[in-house]
Amino acid sequence: MSEIDRGVVRYVADLARIALTDEEVDRFTAQLSVVLDAVGKLREVDTERVPPTASVLPLQNVLREDEVREGLTVEQAMRNAPSRDGDLFRVQTVIEERPPSG
């Protein structure tokens, strides 16, 4: 059996920044347990002296000249913004003011 339970699903969803309803937590816990049990069979494969493959291509360190090229204009880059302030993406305050000490 896999080690996934409702607490793990909530914790991992939090890491992934996804809000879940209680119903989703229940459903995904059951479904992901089945998937992880199937995936867990990999543990039985002997990989003692096998290196990992991240990419199948025989390419390494693809380099190019560091040349100035035309990119998107500010307006092109900004035009899909859900909320903006001139040439800036508007988000909520991230750093709050320190409460007065004392």
Binding site: V12, A13, L20, F28, L32
Partner: peptide, 10 residues
């Protein structure tokens, strides 16, 4: 997509 995000993050 949510299931796979959770599986992948895990």
């Amino acid at each position: 997509v949510k299931r796979r995000m959770i599986l992948g993050t895990y």
